[in-house]
Nucleic acid binder design. Structure first.
Lengths: 229, 229
DNA sequence: TCAAAAGTGTTGAGCGTACACCCATGC
DNA sequence: GCATGGGTGTACGCTCAACACTTTTGA
């Protein structure tokens, strides 16, 4: 079966830049392409948008199909459509970025992906298509958005220590923060809920665990509160 | 001539939310549709992306074709692709927003537009498709981006008074600002260049004209300066 | 001379930043 | 008891917000 139109149409795809955080590094999830073009090369997970599905849906579907990830934070990044970005034909892609708690998810390659692996951001292979550019855009967006939106919590376990939160900001923003000032600032905001639990399995005094209080954040936002690190 | 593909493809369009500022109001440029669907309804200027042209190019081309505007500030906003947003078929659109100096440009309808007119933002007609949503998104983006990027200057004449600049911020952000504090803050930034000209044709003391110094802004940005109102 | 807007400084409060030590825990 | 990181307070400088009067100009 084929489909015929009066005017030529660019193909439409979605691509996802998936960020994850381990204790020391910001990582990104790449797949090894099983098909041409760029077969055997590393690329962002993604694929064609189907007629009748929204592009957000396409992004989630492709992410799940190729890497097994679902129910993650996913937000639109930008759309790129340089006619030469795909050697086959004019392909316009809507890029997304996702944030996941590395510990919560196990990835596994599927469908068009031979492998799905986490790469540290400072040790990346050359990527297929213009995926380097998209990844850079996503990285910049993450860095700037992290400062004025509470999206960092998406990269941490549900319950986390203040030290973990601080480390997250230090890693992504790439600068050191003062421990006392950081704690003062974030606690004063009133968007963290103290749990009655503490860390376990550490060889020193165990730290208190906190949880991001999305309710409180929403309430405060409506009253003009502005999150900022 | 027709075009045939192995898989169905959504159609791809671009739409532009064009903002302009007169002395008292933020306005948006709409066109009256000459063709179905929504014939006779007001809509955002836009149209189909051609194979072989970048989407930025498509946005500029459509803007020029339908409204006569060219060489304006234009930036990608978002991409929407709900399959039901167009009654004909699945159409994905890449939305842009543009900022223009009202005084510098004369608009005129052309091609698929019966008319092109400026509407005040608080007196809008019901728009075709989901263009209301896109316009709202653009308005929010403008409001938030205005605060931390020097894009407001795109809405003013090349040379402007501090009062005009302040009025721009007051109109778009929808709150009053203190004159002395505003002047102090913006002048201290060092991104305005004082010209040796003053206003003319005013029935009171004429104000000094300033110019946005993009060079200085770029230099300072590289050194970590962060524009913010 | 009047009307209208331009232009200009000071003060107090709150916030960001810099900085060092004691405490709890596991080994 | 020692190593490791958890947890805490203060002082200073800067920025932000509030606030009113004089000056210039054209009509």
């Amino acid at each position: 079966m084929t489909f015929t139109y009066d005017y030529a149409r660019p193909a439409l795809t979605v691509d996802c830049v998936v960020f994850g955080l381990d204790d020391h590094d910001l990582k990104v999830l790449l797949i090894e392409r099983k098909l041409k073009p760029f077969r055997g090369k590393w690329a962002l997970p993604g694929g064609f948008v189907r007629v009748g599905e929204s592009i957000d849906h396409a992004a989630r579907r492709e992410l799940k199909e190729e890497t097994g990830l679902e129910k993650v934070f996913l937000e639109q990044l930008c759309t790129v459509g340089n006619p030469l970005r795909d050697p086959r034909e004019h392909v316009v892609t809507v890029a997304y970025y996702a944030l996941v708690r590395l510990s919560d998810h196990r990835v596994h390659a599927a469908t068009d992906a031979a492998q799905a692996l986490w790469f540290s951001l400072d040790d990346l292979p050359k990527l297929a298509f213009d995926h380097d550019d998209i990844l850079n855009t996503a990285h910049q967006r993450l860095r700037s958005k992290l400062r004025y939106q509470p999206i960092g919590f998406e990269l941490l376990p549900k319950k986390f220590t203040l030290r973990q939160l601080q480390a997250l900001y230090e890693i992504v923003l790439n600068r050191e923060l003062d421990k006392r000032n950081f704690r003062k600032k974030i606690l004063k905001m009133g968007v963290l809920e103290e749990t009655d639990e503490i860390e376990s399995d550490v060889a020193h005094r165990a730290a208190r665990l906190f949880r991001f209080d999305r309710q409180a954040y929403r309430r405060m936002t409506r009253r003009g509160f502005h999150f900022e690190i």
